[in-house]
Structure formats: structure tokens, C-alpha cells
Design a protein around this nucleic acid. Structure first.
Length: 523
DNA sequence: TCTGGGGTCCTAGGACCC
DNA sequence: TCTGGGGTCCTAGGACCC
């Protein structure tokens, strides 16, 4: 078929994205730790009745054992393999070493999992590589460093995008190194099955197969609207571009956690209510423990139940405010369980899996709070210094009201435009003199009375009116007092438990007022 | 051979508000 | 009184990745 003229529109001038993929990682770590396993088939995964394989060593793959194969089948295919339960702590330790080596190369590293990462060589401190030979040299040097430090092999792919780098790292596994030259992208992609494209799984491959599309080259026959019609807006458009080697996704070093969950498949179906409640309680406790140790709170609890025939159902519930209270999460999980189980067992009896998850994580992290406060102090200090240098007279907003508690709304400032969402009179607390009054966001199920509202009306309030959980009765979760001002940027003053029995109902306003006053009083 | 556990992202419908 | 459209949030399910 006709091929559109190469090269595809690409932005990079060199194949500066690397994809590093450790070979048969879990199995390789086990072989490294236990020399008697070297050269022998090793299978790491669930070893129980309903387990599946996580990783098979290359020796085991020769027998047809690969990831996601049920362990029961694997044992039949390869009875002489060593079957090992995963030891994540060990894999984590090795992974840390590898990721550190990558970061020594370039600060822009995006871990995909314990055994995989993208590295953006364009961010190398000593200058980005300019041609393919330089990239090849860097990649080979990296591979030998990894081998020296860990005793393990990695396959590395390089290209002008994540897509190409990933395809390249797969091309000569294990222990391979392939760099795709600029302009050579389509030659690599064309013969590959569509499954090789990131995001094309069994379902999409099946739909494409039904219309006669099996390879990437064949995929390019379809128009964008064909694909959008087939797969929806987001996917259709994405796949249309991927098929042309167009992939503008950046290497993103830090992606915030969105949810935390735990689930168990039971070797034998659970049948009675008491056992299910006990199981879901244990799962909820596990999740809360991990939530807390990550320094997070969350708003939405989800319970998952899978019946004997694999019918899978989820039920969720959202609190008015984020929490990490174990009791609340357990209670919600049990409520949800009672709704989910009948749905999951509608067409068969018994529950094979239960899970509990928390999402809607708040950006509250205990460990960060101190650093955050220090950063805010500096920002406010700088704003104050600028303001005082600029305008002789002080009279910081907020200062004068210290005695009465709540300010009357400030008159609108000269620079007009109240921020979006600002209440009446909220405009321009940063007037002609004095430091900017930071905007304040309050959220949490805190009863806020009229005095607090009046006080807020005098602030540069951006989000308060629409914050989730704003003015709710239940004593759940935490209150975060944040501000965002033109000179300070967004930040938090502090986070306080709203369900602390020692705190008075007015805490949100009180806390904000106190915090601002203590930071804004002129020295 | 009955199919893990940790996640992410997208879609679609309904509620609710403006 | 009837009608409407947009935006956001919540819920449920599904596809996908390692």
C-alpha cells in the first residue's frame, strides 16, 4: 500500500528518549540472589490455586511460560521450574539502584514500574546528544553500568519519542540495544502488529482485526474519523497519531499518586457474610495503613467484588472531605460490600475476590508540611519586602482588624478584576500599599459562621465558594487552609483535624485569620 | 488452563447549579 | 410556564499497562 512521505512530523533532532527495561526482572533478581537458580527455569508469581505468573525467566519461557499465565498451567508446561512467591522488597532495592544510575545520566527519568523507565537525554546536564552514534554510546555505557552494579541485564531502546523508544527496547530482548534513527520511525513501526502500540490491548486489537487491520502499516489506511468512530475521541485521535510515529508525550519524572488499593483473590470462594466482612475490614485496614504512610488522605472509598463466574462489580462512596480515619473507611467499606455482593453473585454463588480502594487523594502530605511552610514563609517575606520597599506606609491588610477578628470587605483596588469565584467585595486585597493578602481556600466539613464568611469576603478568595465539603456538618477529616496570591503562588498555611473534639466549630476562619495575622504583622 | 495485584485513563449517564 | 444548554461532580464500568 502507499506510504505517506517520510519523515513524520517529529520535533526531536536526535533519538534522545531512552526506554530501559530490565530483562525478566523478578526472576533475574532471584537468580542473582541464589546462584543455584542460574541457568534454570524460574517462575515468580502467585503460587496458590488461583495464582498467575508475574515473571518467567528466559529458561522457563522456552516452555511457553510467560507473564499472566495461570500458575496451574505453568506447572504443567514446566514442572521442573522453581516456583517462587515474589519478594518485592528485594526487587525494590535493586530497582532503586537502577533508577539512581539513570538519574545520574539525566535528571529527567520517568519510572514506569520497578523494572522499567524512560530517560530524556535532552535534559542531560552536560548537553544533549546530537546524533545517533552519541546516543548509542550513552545507551551501551548505561547498560554496562547497570550490569556492573546489579549483575543484571537491561534492554535499552532509543528514539525520538516514548513510543519509538519502547518499541526499540522490545526489539532485541534480552540484553539488547536498539536506537532508531531520526526519520526511520515508520520503517520500524510498519511491520509490527497493532498490539505493539502502547494502549492497544486485546479488545482494540480484536475490533481492528475485524475490519482487516493487523499491522501498523494497515492501521494507517484508516482516517482519523474512522478511528474516532471506532474507539472514541481520545483513543481514536491518539491511535491515529501513534500509527504515524507521532507521539508528543513528555518524559514526566513525578506523577502524583491518584489512588491506593488492596485486593485479594481467595483460594476458595467466600460464601458467608461474616467472612466477607472480616476480609473487607482487613483490606480497608491495609489500605489506610498505606494511605497514611504515604502521607495522604482520601475522599472516595471503592469496594470491588468478583463473583465465582468473574462478574465484577464496584461500589463507591464519597465523603464530604478527605480522611485517613480507619474507622470511617472500614464502616464505608462494609456498607458498600453489602451493596456490591448481591450484584456480583447475581449469576453464580460465592465471592472469589474482594478489594478496597481510596481515591480522591488530598494533596496533604505530613512529611511535606514543614518544607511547605518554610517555602511559604520565604514567599511571604519576599512579598512583604517588596511591598515595603515600594510603598512607605505599612498598614498591612488584616493588621488593623487584629482586635475585632474579622475584617470588613476591602474596597476594590485599582487593578480591578476580582479573581474568578471571588465573593462580593473580595477584590484586590492587595491594594495600593502593603503586602498582598493571599487568597484563601478553605475546605473541609467545617461549620463556617457568618463572621467567618464576612472575614473571608475581605480576602482574595478564589475557591472557597465551590470547594468540596464547604460548610458541611459532619465532623470528618481535615481542614486545609490554603492561600494563593499573585505574589506568593499557591500554598498551604496548615492542615488541621476538623474532627478534633478540642477544636471549636469556627476553626477554619479562626485558623486562617490567626495564621495570616502571625505572618503579616510587620516586624 | 479458568483468569493476580497494583495502578491509570476514558466514557457515559444522571444530578445539580447557573 | 416551558425549555435549554453548559459545567462540574459523582458513580459504574471497561480497557489497558506492568
Amino acid at each position: 500500500m502507499d506510504r505517506p512521505p517520510s519523515p513524520a512530523p517529529l520535533t526531536r533532532q536526535a533519538p534522545s528518549v531512552l526506554h530501559v527495561d530490565m530483562d525478566a526482572f523478578y526472576a533475574a533478581v532471584e537468580q542473582q540472589h541464589k546462584p543455584s537458580l542460574r541457568g534454570k527455569p524460574v517462575v515468580v508469581g502467585g503460587v496458590g490455586l488461583r495464582g498467575v505468573v508475574s515473571t518467567a525467566s528466559y529458561e522457563a519461557r522456552a516452555f511457553g511460560v510467560r507473564s499472566a499465565v495461570p500458575t496451574a498451567l505453568a506447572r504443567r508446561l514446566c514442572p521442573n521450574a522453581a516456583y517462587l512467591y515474589p519478594r518485592f522488597a528485594a526487587y525494590h532495592a535493586v530497582s532503586t539502584v537502577v533508577m539512581q544510575l539513570l538519574r545520574e545520566l539525566s535528571p529527567l527519568v520517568e519510572p514506569v514500574s520497578l523494572d522499567e523507565a524512560f530517560v530524556d537525554l535532552a535534559a542531560m546536564p552536560d548537553g544533549a546528544p546530537r546524533d545517533i552514534e552519541q546516543v548509542r554510546g550513552i545507551a551501551e555505557e548505561l547498560r554496562s553500568r547497570i550490569a556492573r552494579r546489579t549483575g543484571l541485564t537491561a534492554s535499552v531502546g532509543g528514539g525520538t519519542s516514548k513510543l519509538i523508544a519502547k518499541v526499540a527496547s522490545d526489539a532485541q530482548k534480552p540484553d539488547g540495544c536498539v536506537i532508531v534513527p531520526v526519520g526511520g520511525e515508520l520503517d520500524w513501526l510498519d511491520p509490527l502488529p497493532v498490539r505493539a502500540l502502547w494502549g492497544v490491548g486485546p479488545a482494540t486489537a480484536d475490533r481492528l482485526r475485524k475490519i482487516g487491520v493487523g499491522t501498523v502499516a494497515e492501521l494507517r489506511v484508516l482516517t482519523e474519523s474512522d478511528l474516532v468512530g471506532l474507539l472514541g475521541t481520545a483513543w481514536g485521535g491518539m491511535l491515529f497519531r501513534l500509527a504515524r510515529g507521532m507521539d508528543a508525550r513528555a518524559v514526566e519524572p513525578e506523577r502524583p499518586t491518584k489512588s491506593i488499593s488492596a485486593e485479594d483473590t481467595y483460594p476458595h470462594d467466600l460464601a458467608d457474610r461474616a467472612a466477607m466482612r472480616a476480609a473487607v475490614t482487613q483490606l480497608a485496614e491495609r489500605v489506610v495503613r498505606r494511605l497514611r504512610s504515604a502521607g495522604h488522605t482520601g475522599r472516595t472509598v471503592t469496594v470491588k467484588a468478583r463473583g465465582h463466574d468473574f462478574t465484577t462489580v464496584t461500589r463507591s462512596e464519597t465523603f464530604g472531605a478527605p480522611t485517613d480515619d480507619e474507622r470511617l473507611v472500614v464502616e464505608a467499606a462494609i456498607r458498600l460490600l453489602d451493596d456490591a455482593v448481591p450484584a456480583a453473585t447475581a449469576s453464580s454463588t460465592g465471592i472469589r475476590l474482594l478489594g478496597v480502594g481510596i481515591s480522591g487523594l488530598a494533596d496533604y502530605a505530613q512529611g511535606d508540611l514543614v518544607a511547605e511552610l518554610a517555602r511559604l514563609e520565604r514567599a511571604l517575606g519576599a512579598a512583604e519586602a517588596r511591598a515595603q520597599a515600594g510603598a512607605g506606609d505599612g498598614g498591612a491588610p488584616g493588621d488593623g482588624e487584629a482586635g475585632t477578628g474579622f475584617a470588613e470587605p476591602n474596597p476594590a483596588g485599582p487593578d480591578g478584576e476580582p479573581p474568578p469565584g471571588a465573593g462580593a467585595g473580595a477584590a484586590a486585597a492587595h491594594g495600593e500599599s502593603g503586602p498582598a493578602v493571599p487568597a484563601v481556600t478553605l475546605f473541609g466539613p467545617v461549620p463556617v459562621d457568618r463572621a467567618a464568611r464576612r472575614w473571608l469576603a475581605g480576602q482574595d478568595v478564589r475557591h472557597a465558594q465551590r470547594g468540596p465539603g464547604w460548610v458541611q456538618g459532619a465532623g470528618v477529616g481535615r481542614v486545609t487552609v490554603r492561600f494563593e496570591g499573585p505574589d506568593t503562588g499557591p500554598g498551604r498555611i496548615g492542615t488541621f483535624r476538623a474532627d478534633d473534639p478540642d477544636l471549636e466549630p469556627l476553626d477554619a476562619g479562626e485558623v486562617a485569620r490567626e495564621a495570616l495575622r502571625s505572618r503579616q504583622s510587620p516586624a
